[in-house]
Computed example of a mutant assay.
Amino acid sequence: MKNLFLLSIIAVLSIGSVNAQEFKAGVNAGLVTGDFSDLASFNLALDVAYLWDVADQIQVGAITGFSQTFTKEVDGFDTNDVQFLPIAAAGRFAISDQFTIGTDLGYAVGINDGNDGGFYYAPRVQYSVNESLDIVAAYRGVSIDAGPVTLGFNTITLGVEFAL
Rank of each mutant, 00 (worst) to 15 (best):
G16D: 05
I101T: 03
T64L: 08
D35A: 09
G159L: 02
A88C: 04
G117Q: 10
Q59K: 15
F162Q: 01
L44I: 15
Y127R: 01
Y127W: 07
L51D: 00
I111K: 04
E22K: 00
F84L: 12
Y127L: 02
V82N: 06
V27I: 15
L4M: 06
A89R: 09
L39F: 13
F5T: 08
I101F: 02
L133D: 00
S96P: 04
G16I: 13
G110Q: 07
A138N: 08
I63Y: 01
A94L: 09
T64M: 06
A11W: 05
N3K: 14
G91E: 02
F5Y: 12
L31P: 03
F70Q: 08
Q21T: 09
F5W: 13
R124V: 01
Y50N: 03
T69Q: 04
G117V: 09
A45G: 08
G117R: 11
G147Y: 04
V109N: 07
A94W: 01
G16R: 14
V48Y: 09
N43K: 14
L7S: 11
Q98L: 14
T33H: 04
V109H: 10
T64N: 05
A108H: 11
S8R: 03
V125E: 00
P86R: 12
P123A: 05
K72H: 04
L39Y: 13
V60A: 09
A49M: 08
N154E: 09
A62Q: 03
P123K: 12
I111F: 03
V32K: 05
Y139T: 05
L46C: 05
L46K: 02
V27W: 11
V60I: 15
A55Y: 10
N154F: 06
V27H: 06
G91N: 04
D134H: 03
N154V: 09
I15N: 08
I58H: 09
F153Q: 07
A62V: 14
V160D: 00
L13T: 03
T69Y: 01
L46Q: 06
N80G: 07
G61S: 05
Q59E: 12
G147W: 06
I144E: 09
A89H: 05
D97C: 13
S67W: 07
S67P: 01
G118R: 15
L6Y: 11
D145S: 14
V82P: 03
F153W: 08
S37L: 10
S143P: 07
D104Y: 06
D145C: 10
Y139N: 07
A122G: 10
I95W: 06
L85Y: 09
T150V: 15
G65D: 02
M1V: 11
R92I: 04
D56I: 14
D38W: 05
Q59L: 14
V48N: 03
Y50H: 11
E22Y: 00
V48M: 10
A137W: 01
G159Y: 00
T155Q: 14
A137H: 02
E161V: 10
D81N: 15
D38H: 12
G106D: 04
T103P: 01
T33Q: 10
Q59M: 12
V109Y: 12
F93P: 04
T79R: 14
Y121R: 06
N43G: 03
I9V: 15
Q126P: 00
A163R: 00
K2M: 13
L7R: 08
